[in-house]
Design a protein around this nucleic acid. Sequence first.
RNA 1: GGGCCUGUAGCUCAAUUGGUUAGAGCAGAGCGCUCAUAACGCUUUGGUUGGGGGUUCGAGUCCCUCCGGGCCUACCA
Length: 571
Amino acid sequence: MARVLITSALPYINGIKHLGNLVGSQLPADLYARYCRARGHEVMFICATDEHGTPAELAAAKAGQPVAQYCAEMHQVQADLARGFGLSFDHFGRSSSARNHALTQALAARLGAAGLIQEVAEKQVYSHADGRFLPDRYIEGTCPNCGYERARGDQCENCTKQLDPTDLINPRSAVSGSTDLEVRETRHLYLRQSLMREKLDQWIDSQRGWPLLTTSIARKWLHDGDGLQDRGITRDLDWGVPVQFDGAPWGGMEGKVFYVWFDAPIEYIAATAEWADANGLDDAAWRRWWRTDEGAQDVRYVQFMGKDNVPFHTLSFPATLMGSGEPWKLVDYIKSFNYLNYDGGQFSTSQGRGVFMDTALELLPADYWRWWLLSHAPENSDAEFTWENFQVSVNKDLADVLGNLVSRVTKFCRSKFGETVPEGGEHGPREAQLMADLTARLRAYEAQMEAMEIRKSAGELRALWVLGNEYLQEAAPWATYKSDPDRAAMQIRLALNLIRFYAVVSRPFIPDAARAVMAAMGCDDWSWPDDVAMALGTLPAGHGFTTPEVLFAKITDAQRGEWEACFAGPR
RNA sequence: GGGCCUGUAGCUCAAUUGGUUAGAGCAGAGCGCUCAUAACGCUUUGGUUGGGGGUUCGAGUCCCUCCGGGCCUACCA
């Protein structure tokens, strides 16, 4: 028994996430959390909505709502969708919480006292019409390089030239279109990451077995050019954690808030505190997960995220925690993912391209999506979702291999012995062989899960299911029933136990179906099959069960065609 | 422009870090079974590992080069 702290990158608040977002962090994190719990480990699985920043404010404005209300509503929407997908967070928090405000300010104060924060005066574009400072990418104008008229202030997407907003010809606000812009001087706080480069570099070097994607991105930022750059951690916005607070080691920062990438990872900790609050527990309850001087020294901390989040988690957040001089728990393993593409292009939140979490659940049960996404997780390179691949994989793996196995066993038993685990007969060599095969495969499955090799884990699980079909084919209880009914009874008794076994080991991937199968078996024993032979004796002769309805209905060609057409363009 | 990742059977992916004859699943072909969601099982056809060159007893794996895909980023390795 170990203690495992698991965090998923925080989904941004400004809308419903697509399947690419889901498979990049929350879903694999959930798989791992469920597996760890199934193995009897003590798990704290944390996620939250990332609610600060300009896009949130603009999305709220577009929806005609105060930003606080907009975020509260969208948080609820995302929480409901997470539940719909079976994401088993111990707590799904909000980066706008009072806990995060307090913790972000406290950490910033520590960093300031340690000399790791610097005030920098810089020039930013202010829009009078919008009444706000505009981030570079919200300023549009004509590209001085190629003449493209809709170049953004950070980069021209036509000629790819990197730009400064002041380079643009005829600049205007992308929010309102106003040309009433002004370059103003404003002061901001910078996190002096550059001072911690050596320490971070050694820390990264000391990690073993991290995905190449994780370490290569971290090293790129550490060693590229002049090395790790200091980064601004504040912005001129209203919505966020105020930079000026009682006890702050700086003055004159009224009207500014911390920038999202600074406060968002801190929310991992704050959300754990929110969890304690929500459960009526004291501070010690959450601090034993996060403070190595208060119980977290034996915690294993694993983070899941898409590759775009790697720099913040390998460098900025560790710099924040290390720089505080306090004994905060640092991450032990960072599992990062590439992108999932949609049918030849990218999923796009802004363009509404691809399948989003809400519509996905309207089409099919969560387990269909969970299985396909996890068994095709973009671990080593970008992966691609196509409707055809989805249909073929799901029908074959879930409906044919697993669902049909449950069906053939239960229906055969019902017709020959009734809905009761049959009595009689003794295991023979073929049964011993099955146990041995199952044990070998199960150990391989466990090893892949522990290594967080998602695709390979799915492959091993599927191989476990296949063993059941192979056994049934060879044992042929429909034939032995005629010559030796006791033997058929033994075979079916084993097969029924096998179904329960599958419910247990499959639950991390397909929790809803697993629950349905377990319920049909009239059982609630989810103990992990450390000893396979013993596990396959759980349901005794005489135990009643019910024959489940079709576990996974197949996706028809008609459905696929319809969905293909329906999702071809922006929704 | 620079850096990193990547290119393996029609499709989706493996290959214990240089070590026998490059393996799985799906799709295709054949056979078997009939309990089952026309499901399952067995057998089987597919690869000059993007092209070319090199190092080595030995290269999918290392080096060079060209071609293609992706990500990150800025006058710097």
